[in-house]
Design a protein around this nucleic acid. Structure first.
Lengths: 201, 201
DNA sequence: CATTATAGTGAACGAAAGGTCACTTGTCAA
DNA sequence: TTGACAAGTGACCTTTCGTTCACTATAATG
């Protein structure tokens, strides 16, 4: 039971921190959202900052488990169309999963204040995606699906625009459908340009 | 004199909001940084929120004056190398000008809380850049410097990665030099791929 | 010169914040 | 059955927040 409440507190913290930021969140509201009175929270965490640190621990661990290890890498596509399909599958999860959305928002809001948030933000928004697609593109080049080029540069050129549109979805959820279409278009455009035929008409 | 203090308050607000966010900023510190006592601030703005709104007004107006009007558009480059030079010139300003950096940070921190901040953030980070480079690329295609393609898609594919690295500079200023090099590399890569020869070796 | 508006001061206020503590309740092991 | 402990309560504390207000100094205006 103890553990359960501890985790519920973290879940509520993620929700509130992602909405109002760390400074804009108060323990009263947080505990009320759990049907608790605020002193109850202090039975599980010794301070607001302790909650924040535990939440970050959890986010860092989650990232390591799901995106840090090579075993969770998506398979290398066997055709250009499959790259688009794989991309859309990953993007669809990431823009619709509430927990992932809230994680991105928290990192966005706290990146300038907390060193660990800053580090994780860079992974989430930039280097992590680049790493994953560097491997994928290396594999696709080996299979002759992409023309030979620096796979890291291609991964960056591919993921950064997608990342920008994911941020747009977080900022303006009403534009999610449009953004998804734009991502798919961009993916096809990318393949047209970097495909084996070198983008020649 | 009145106007002077009013503007100094906005400047201080930009600095503090960009560091600690709106919720994390207090009027005591803000006024102290101006050599004032906090009640003095209320002679110029009736509330904290009024300061915030005035700051946003100023940011919106500034954006409109500097990036919104076609007359301030950079000239269309006359060679691929000139595109890289133009890009680096713009990026260098944007990652080193403290006021612009703080503006981006404020928009990043408040985009989920304030509708106008959200709107301006999308312009700053996405559509504004795309618009500018859509025109540039259209011009370059006319001059035969880029192969014919959808200029808007190219502008998006060009500016989004650069924008991602500008965000990295905001987040981790120590990596600014590296990021600038990466932007330059990316720009050259982009030209290699989209140049008139179509990226063929 | 008298007046009046303006910029700034310092004390005070109520609300809300994070945090503490003595106490109650329920659960489980000895 | 009893003792111990973990979970939760409600009252309370201190600090800090945004905001107000009576007051002063200054400089421009009639």
């Amino acid at each position: 039971m103890a553990n359960d409440t501890k985790e519920r507190i973290l879940a509520a913290a993620l929700e509130m921190f992602s909405k109002n930021g760390y400074a804009g969140t108060n323990i009263r509201e947080l505990s009320a959202s759990l049907g608790l009175v605020k002193s109850g929270v202090y039975k599980h965490y010794e301070s607001k900052e302790a909650i924040w640190n535990a939440l970050l621990d959890q986010m860092i661990a989650y990232y390591g488990e799901h995106f840090g290890s090579p075993e969770h890498l998506p398979p290398v596509p066997n055709s250009p169309e499959e790259l688009t399909r794989l991309t859309m599958q990953m993007v669809n999860i990431t823009v619709h999963d509430e927990k992932i959305i809230m994680t991105r928002k928290v990192l966005t809001l706290e990146q300038f204040r907390d060193a660990r948030a800053r580090e994780l933000a860079t992974k989430h928004f930039l280097t992590g995606l680049t790493d994953i697609f560097t491997r994928i593109f290396t594999g696709m080049m080996d299979k002759g699906l992409l023309r030979k080029d620096d796979p890291r540069m291609l991964a960056f050129a591919y993921t950064a625009p997608i990342s920008a549109l994911i941020h747009l979805c977080d900022r303006e959820p009403g534009k999610t459908e449009d953004a998804l279409k734009q991502i798919e278009e961009f993916s096809r455009h990318f393949i047209r340009v970097y495909g084996q035929d070198g983008g020649m008409k």
